[in-house]
């Protein structure tokens, strides 16, 4: 299969995950030379719809799927390119992701771990029907894969965040890792502002957007299971740690997740801001959470209860 390898530029281990392209992230997180791509760009499996809108297609439709090794361990990988059409779910990109997950369900000889490098605003509006279907089918496939004993780990730290269908997809995964720059949610900031008004949510207020949807808040309230430094090595370490401890996928886990979410709602439901939630968690100076460095945040987070759980 080496003939199918696409040559990429080398990625420095300390390079920013947030700023990297999807291919740079794959090169940066996997063992050197181990990545083998399925349906590589040379196959030219492109969107059949974008030309109608006078929009350029991409040779991989912004979805890179394949297999590789993570610290010697075989993994399947899928990476969304957030810079192309916002990393959106569409006919081809969705089909590639779905095919990867279904292959893992059908073939027990394939790796029993899937890494999803999410970077997506959700469904591609130009191919909305196909995109919505893809999200629904991907969510079902992830659940079926987990039932079949496959660990599915979402890595969130790209510029598009993980919103809409990508947020829903993340929520079905075994585990989620996120960086400070990562954002996770269903309805994105611009959509909330459009529907509910700027007084409800000002999408231009970056501090507000990150305090609500950003990685630190998600980690503190248990919405993500690992906090990654915004580097290739940071996400590599987080992925490795999470792959070692996927929760069992059974009725007990689902009941625990339901309970956890109900408790979270009872605890934070009346809060007007993220800082208020951080105060309730017992953080002495919650205002400082946004501005401290990663090491200080990890130290503070270590003292917060309820972040780590066997639910999900």
């Amino acid at each position: 299969m080496t003939g199918m390898m696409i040559r990429n530029e080398a990625t420095v281990a300390s390079a920013s995950w947030f700023l990297a392209s999807a291919r740079e992230r794959l090169t940066g997180i996997l063992d050197p030379g181990s990545f083998v791509e399925f349906l590589p760009p040379s196959e030219r499996v492109r969107s059949p719809h974008l030309a109608q809108f006078d929009l350029p297609a991409a040779f991989d439709d912004g979805m890179i799927v394949g297999r590789g090794r993570l610290d010697g361990r075989d993994v399947l990988v899928a990476a969304q390119e957030g810079q192309f059409m916002g990393g959106t779910f569409a006919e081809v990109s969705g089909g590639k992701l779905l095919g990867l997950i279904r292959a893992a369900i059908a073939d027990p000889d394939l790796p029993r771990s899937i890494l999803l490098l999410l970077d997506s605003g959700g469904v591609r509006l130009q191919e909305a029907n196909a995109g919505e279907l893809a999200v629904a089918e991907v969510m079902r496939a992830i659940v079926e894969a987990r039932s079949a004993g496959v660990a599915v780990v979402a890595l969130v730290g790209g510029r598009a965040g993980a919103f809409g269908g990508a947020g829903l997809t993340a929520a079905t995964c075994s585990r989620i890792a996120i960086s400070e720059q990562g954002r996770l949610g269903v309805t994105g900031p611009e959509v909330i502002e459009t529907n509910q008004g700027v007084e409800e949510f000002d999408s231009q207020d970056k501090a507000l957007v990150w305090s609500v949807t950003g990685g630190r808040s998600r980690r503190l309230i248990g919405g993500a299971d690992a906090y990654a430094e915004d580097t290739m090595t940071g996400f590599r370490a987080a992925a490795l740690a999470l792959l070692d401890s996927p929760p069992p996928f059974d009725l007990l886990t689902l009941q625990a997740e339901q309970e956890r979410l109900a408790e979270r709602h009872a605890l934070f439901g009346a809060c007007e801001s993220a800082v208020e939630m951080w105060g309730i968690l017992g953080i002495a100076d919650p205002e400082a959470v946004r501005d401290m460095d990663d090491a200080a945040f990890v130290a503070i987070a270590a003292g917060v209860k309820g972040m780590d759980h066997d639910a999900r």
Binding site: G3, M5, I6, R7, N8, E9, S21, R23, P40, P41, S42, P56, A57, A58, F59, G62, E81, Q83, F84, M85
Partner: peptide
């Protein structure tokens, strides 16, 4: 003797180039 390479991304003000 590289068989293929891909550089760049299809994003505003950018392009992707596939060489074979």
């Amino acid at each position: 003797n590289a068989r293929r390479a891909l550089v760049g991304v299809v994003a505003s003000g950018n392009l992707e180039v596939l060489l074979e």
